[in-house]
Design a protein around this nucleic acid. Structure first.
Lengths: 197, 197
DNA sequence: AAAAATCTACCTACCGGCCGGTCGGTTTTG
DNA sequence: CAAAACCGACCGGCCGGTAGGTAGATTTTT
């Protein structure tokens, strides 16, 4: 738990989150760990690799925990409610890593970039599947599943990124607001111009 | 229109958008303009100042054009519909600059940072005002105006940032989807757990 | 069990290269 | 000819990364 490789990772997460990947130097990470710059390279082959490890672990855990939460749930609307709540929970729980995963894609090599984007697509596909099934079942109004999934995810992700534990709203309250907003936006028989017209 | 100061700005917008502010060097900007690095400093005192000029102009234009669109409109629901449409339109119209303004705040000096954040707050306040008035008038359901405004803006901004002119959806279609989604999410008498409970 | 070999985890010192920015001079324009 | 616009050469500094070494624990050999 307190081994140096883990320390380097968590110090990096903190610095990448606060200053950004490009604005953070290896020396700073080393100083934060109480070791010399060169020692970083004993644990990680490069700065970019360190970034990739952070992002990859986050994406894997994200998809895994959503899958776990959804298994067994068959009702479409409940699946969406659960997915939204879990997405918010995970993003609040691991705020820094998720922020990095969403904003530092440009720091990756083309190969690593592809790996992360594929994982992201796989995750988004879970939401698109719920939307499509909901539309087919007549629970949700007609609408482009891709656009709607992006909308939902962006909404929740952003919400989690400006959340401050000391703020006036609890995790539960934030989750509820989004859940209500999203279900209302998706459901059939609502207001406004028809979707998909 | 084709003076060098303008060229530098538009080349910078393109590079900051594609590679990010920190990953873009002054030499690259100069090369893109067909001049030498030193000549950049004849037009702009520093790299950071260049970034600030881009962001500041964008924020000013953004607020101005929204104010212009809303003037004269008194109906609450129509004000929100107009605001959403105009926000999307502006962000699609000036995609790159808006992306920069939303993602490169860390590149600014504390003084410039404050200026931009104040302008952003001023813009958000316009949306919060519509939400509050709508709630008072009984048109919108109860809900935290700040959280809801962030949600609305993030949604539309993100939508505009992955829009590609060659894609399958037109600007009008995207605008309509968001308008419908947002109005449905805000309106009274909808589904799900009560907001503000 | 002593000696030899190996491995872990870190160190100091250094490298080439690019960065933002400056300086003093030169060309272009009105 | 003066002001505006631009250029080539240069600067100190920091960057990511490497080379080579070492103290101490562990493992292997005799």
């Amino acid at each position: 738990m307190t081994d140096m490789k883990t320390t380097i990772k968590s110090v990096s997460i903190d610095l990448f989150f606060r200053k950004g990947y490009f604005a953070t130097s290896i020396s700073e990470i080393a100083a934060g760990c109480g070791i010399q710059k060169a020692s970083i390279y004993y644990h990680y082959p490069s700065k970019e690799d360190l970034l990739f490890h952070i992002m990859n672990a986050t994406m894997t855990d994200l998809t895994d925990s959503l899958r776990r939460c959804l298994s067994g749930e068959t009702d479409i609307e409940q699946r969406m409610r659960t997915a939204v709540r879990e997405h918010v929970r995970f993003h609040l729980d691991r705020q820094k890593e998720n922020f990095i995963a969403n904003s530092e894609l440009r720091g990756l090599t083309p190969e690593h970039y592809q790996v992360i984007v594929e994982k992201r697509d796989e995750y988004e596909e879970i939401f698109q599947d719920i939307i499509r099934r909901g539309t087919q079942a007549g629970v949700f109004a007609d609408g482009d599943a891709k656009i709607l999934s992006y909308a939902i995810l962006t909404l929740c992700t952003a919400g989690a990124s400006w959340y401050k534990p000391a703020g006036r709203l609890s995790v539960k309250e934030i989750s509820d607001i989004y859940e209500q907003f999203i279900i209302a936006g998706l459901k059939k028989g609502n207001f406004g111009p028809m979707r998909g017209a």
